[in-house]
Design a protein around this nucleic acid. Sequence first.
DNA 1: AGCACGCCGACT
DNA 2: GTCGGCGTGCTC
Length: 726
Amino acid sequence: MLIAEIALPVPMRGHFDYLLPDSMVPQAGTRVLVPFGRRKLVGLVMACKADSDMPADKLRRVEALLDDKPVMEPLFLQWLTWASQYYQHPLGDILFTALPVYLRKGLGAEVELKAWQLTEMGHDVDPSELKRAAKQQALLAALQSGPVAQEQLSNRYSAAIYRALADKGLIEATTLIPDANKQWPAGIELAEKPRPNLEQSLAISAIAHKAGSFNCFLLEGVTGSGKTEVYLQAIEPLLKQGKQILILVPEIGLTPQTVRRFQRRFSVDVGVLHSGLTDNERMQVWRQAKAGELGIIIGTRSAIFTPLASPGMIIVDEEHDGSYKQQDGWRYHARDMAVVRARLENIPLLLGSATPSLESLNNALAGKYQHLLLRQRAGEAKPVQHQLLDLKGQQLEFGLARGMRQRIQAHLQQGNQVMLFINRRGYAPALICHQCGFVEECHSCDRSYTLHRSLNKLQCHHCSDAKPIPHACVQCGASPMQPVGMGTEQLEQGIASLFPGYQAARIDSDSARGKQKLHQLLEDINQGKHQLLIGTQILAKGHHFPNVSLVVILDVDGSLFSADYRAPEKLAQLITQVAGRAGRAHIQGELWLQTHHPAHPLLQDLLNNGYQHFARLALKERRFAALPPYSYQALFRAEANQAAQAHEFLLQVRQLMAIGPDLAAIGPIPALMEKRQGRYRMQLLLQSQQRTGIQQQLNRLMGQIEKLPLANKVRWSLDMDPQDFT
DNA sequence: AGCACGCCGACT
DNA sequence: GTCGGCGTGCTC
């Protein structure tokens, strides 16, 4: 009797063995319906075999085969099996997050499309008879050769046109099963393309030279240097060969303008995947991509799971962007998944950014990726002037120094807009002396201590050393220490009294919830309905604010002295992205940073030498401190109603680990956001110079960790290559 | 994750 | 007397 290994969408590692009915020999990657406990689940066949490790009386029987051909190709299964091992996450869960909801639910992979065809009466009518209805005439003509799916017609004809012809009895609704192997006609048409500048040409030909096999490119191009044009010209020869292109963009970057740019250039169909789609729309794009009907697929993080019939290239735009990392469940990084996919598919991968992540930059500098540079900025915009404002001893109102308040007032009076950045709140900050700027550092690590109120202690997040909170500044003795960025949180309330007569708009993930809302807000801002824009990182992503002449970052110190070692990198990316976007030709843009440490080497380097130089210096610091990308990390997170339970669980995890020269552990220590929704949150960080140092331990221990009695009492998860420590 | 079983508190 | 709270255990 044949047995199938089946992956199920349950949070348990390993697969499940089922008996196969006689004559059922499913291919790997096909879906089946199986009994599981008291319910029925859709599962994915991984393999078939002759016998099982399970006792025969435990095995149940596959109930039905749902597909006659695989919904997942062997290459995808291989890719996702690798991911399951790498991220230490159950395979079934991974496989099913990679499938559209329709297929997860067991619905048909062969979708019937809504279509239109001529009625008998319609066949007898010559379209030209409809003289006074041009649109109807065109639709009737389009249907002459047989039924056509509405998705291929709908952008040209409104519902009224269909109804008018249907009412006349000339056409009727029908369904169509899509042709499995339709390809777009060879020899795509090309809209006119601009002539690339020298740097762009070099990049394009470097890519073209190695476009036939797996190669990684890092395209580092300052804002406005024309990265998109390089993408467009790099994919052109591939599209001409009938290959498909997958493009990932950050959540905020997927605008109609971006999509239109690709649609306008080539005559191929473009599929778009974003969070606003219905399950049905998502399924259509998935199916069309898998069938090879789409030349280009543009989407956010999860679009990396779109199957392609003939893959040509993967592009990850703004590759440094944090939205590529999934922040719950299976915490994959879409950029890293793209690297592995490109290798398996043997196609090139193009990473683009004005401010590359230190990980990618390191790979480029080490020669693993080919580094392509665009330094020339197109257009006429004047470069933004960067300025530092020393906060030491200043009278602050809502986090703004007096000179800064006057400056803001001046810009407002000129009729310009002012943008104010505050860091996200709720994080454990460092303590700083407002008089002299002193920040206490851990002696063994040279890293600032972080204030944890629940412990009533300062804690070093690099070695987990803790010490009591000092009463006064140790350096100048002048005043009590205070949390970094204190006062900035109240900015929103205070802004009205500081600048009466001007309208403030808050832009954060709450006020920007929903695509429409953000759109409307941005529209209002560019119309000039608001003069003061207050927000977080989201303000810096992808949007142009032509009337902004002054940008202020209120609490730079929060990033310089953060327990999150990536904070300076993120700050530098923010500053660089903002500087590239604010202002325009006739307005001199100004960027002000408020800090107690104007002489800080990272700040000085960033302002004097730019991101490229800064990033290389930051990499040196990372190497010196043995931090990623020069070491590898995995983070256990645990939360519980009682802090002690989360702590105890992580302590037990730590005790299972063989801590030694190959593997260091920090913690358990409180998360930077110590408490959320009334639950206490703790972390245990594992770090190793070798990826295998962590991997082998986890392979050995995840089973045991899951069996710990506390594992069911606390909510816990493992985050491989953690990107933030909130 | 679901879904059942099971053992203690306030209600038609 | 029952309805239902969520702790615990199991699923090839």
